[in-house]
Design a protein around this nucleic acid. Sequence first.
DNA 1: TATGAATGAGCTTTCATTCAT
DNA 2: AATGAATGAAAGCTCATTCAT
Lengths: 205, 205, 205, 205
Amino acid sequence: MSRKPNTEARRAEIIRALQSVMATHGYEKATIQAIAKEAGLAPGLLHYHFKSKQEILVSLVTSLADYGQRRFEQIAGKAESPMDLLNAYLEARVGLGDGAAAEIVAAWVMIGAEAVRQAEVREVYQRAIATELELLSELLANCLRERQRVTTGSRDLAAALLAMMEGAYQLASATSGIMPVGYAAQSALRHAMLSIDAAPLATAS
Amino acid sequence: MSRKPNTEARRAEIIRALQSVMATHGYEKATIQAIAKEAGLAPGLLHYHFKSKQEILVSLVTSLADYGQRRFEQIAGKAESPMDLLNAYLEARVGLGDGAAAEIVAAWVMIGAEAVRQAEVREVYQRAIATELELLSELLANCLRERQRVTTGSRDLAAALLAMMEGAYQLASATSGIMPVGYAAQSALRHAMLSIDAAPLATAS
Amino acid sequence: MSRKPNTEARRAEIIRALQSVMATHGYEKATIQAIAKEAGLAPGLLHYHFKSKQEILVSLVTSLADYGQRRFEQIAGKAESPMDLLNAYLEARVGLGDGAAAEIVAAWVMIGAEAVRQAEVREVYQRAIATELELLSELLANCLRERQRVTTGSRDLAAALLAMMEGAYQLASATSGIMPVGYAAQSALRHAMLSIDAAPLATAS
Amino acid sequence: MSRKPNTEARRAEIIRALQSVMATHGYEKATIQAIAKEAGLAPGLLHYHFKSKQEILVSLVTSLADYGQRRFEQIAGKAESPMDLLNAYLEARVGLGDGAAAEIVAAWVMIGAEAVRQAEVREVYQRAIATELELLSELLANCLRERQRVTTGSRDLAAALLAMMEGAYQLASATSGIMPVGYAAQSALRHAMLSIDAAPLATAS
DNA sequence: TATGAATGAGCTTTCATTCAT
DNA sequence: AATGAATGAAAGCTCATTCAT
């Protein structure tokens, strides 16, 4: 009698198509027509499932943030020590990826630029970054504790590592050869370890 | 009798106007009308001095790269030791800036996104990044040499620091409070020093 | 076993929903989606019960015309003298109404505008107006006869009163405070009475 | 050297074109393309001279209101007595018009409908109506004074006449033969005179 | 050099209508 | 009878670019 809803599946398809088109053409040039074509849908359908183009973008941001979380949890499953967890995190973020990874990274760079100029995008982007910062900060603190170091600097260190990763995304997407994304994982890890070792010992109080 | 040519001055004004509009609205929304208004010029004049809108953007990229060079040289003038020079470099790139700095930083982030999708922009962007990498690499090698360390890792370290700075630009522009630009200078410097100290000693060969 | 046909009930619901949406948004902005939502029905159902959106509009016009007739007959039931009947008519048309009345009045104004541009709507609208004119004309003639006046001018007077009422609908819907609908009843009645009194006496021929 | 602005002339052309298209097709169907074609201009030019389609509509409303004022003043120039002035006013509003008049009348009817649903249009429409009411009220008061009548009812009478005229516009535009516009002038005048004569005498206070 | 009007392609969005279920 | 997804043709609006002055 009644037709069954398929909105969620369609929304996912559309979001994925936006990610794909944005990666190479940017947000402005990711026209509704282009996204529809990429998804193999009629253009009008996009506005049936989404109120506006911007809503697709916002959905993409949260979708990518969620994907990052899931990927970390997946890799972290096998980890045991705090150091393994940190490693898993960096791997999940900047580990050597397949073809899809490059697309995600480029899309994320475009999102970053949109976050600068669109308040609605900035909001979700900021939330995603804050969550990352929180998580990374905690992972670092655990590493520091394990080695009996003070955890005072963990948040600053997390911010530095986060910046390094975001910058690696940018450079990997916009330049060729100068800095591969995967390469950033090593740098970040090295930086983390040097900083952890350099942190003062926590004295028993 | 003859009109005094003011093309260079006009071009500079227009480039500056693009930078200003891009910082808040991005490249696509930086319309010729908006740029003209910001520069206090008639819209038609922009296409008299530039062949296309993209040409203004390309000019802005080289203009900003040159500005960065000049700023470093200016600050570096007082420097004596390799460490002072490195410090000067980081200061020039991510040192505490005034209001204008935030605009430049945001514009640079937008340029980074455009470099991903426009080949012409990518070319000049890449050249600018390569030059930076070269310079920073050299500065780091000098520091390493001064401390009798091997210089093998200087280029990788430079890449990591560059990524950190670019990422700091991004986060500073798109989030509030999470990561101020100026803050990146300290992180980068700390990272540099830790890495230098951790580098193996150069043995006399 | 057999499904109970409810087409008529559904049609009425849909017509009522169009009236409601049109009152505030006009005909063009009364989208099928909006009408369906107002009626609490699925959008697709509207085209099952009506061939087109315009058909709903045409049905609304006749529906409102019928409603007007019924309302008059209802109020007129208690009337005895020609003057009472005239009074009843004006009361039915522009008498103080409840909330629903404002909606009906506004919808009628929108219908009037559509009648100007859509031939199909104009046809039924014109028929409705002609019927009104006929009725009012007759009511006035009766009043004139009762007072032994010539009935020559009754049709012109009816037209003037009709115009006044339509204009009152318009002003009541588009302005606030300047002219309440209910207020028009008094003006029309006064005009009618003055005109009746001023009409020449019918001489026995 | 510089091109001289012609915005005012162009705006007038565009406004006139909207009036023309609206008269037969209504506001929604008066597309930018249609208006441009009617005016013999490129579609894009309309948005160069007007920020939005609605702004053209609002301009048309004030333009028509101004035109009405000028027309009255022109006709009133020859008038001497208060009665002549009243006559001139009604003539200016509903007097037999040429072809252009029918267009203006139809356009005004469409504007009335838009005023119901668009706040911005309602505002200027309301202002125009209020001005008319004020003027007509004053004219009627003068007539009453001349005949030593109390002026208490002048505003109510003005409202009734205004409604009658607006209704005549509607009926004249949407029906054929039932009520010509020009015919309303006589009805209104007759109503005015009957009311004036029926008004109580002003006693010397 | 400089102005600002003009052009037209292309954008996002809306929507009546159709149709598979 | 009923559902809600799907379609595609417009709609209003934007904008780089051109051009007459």
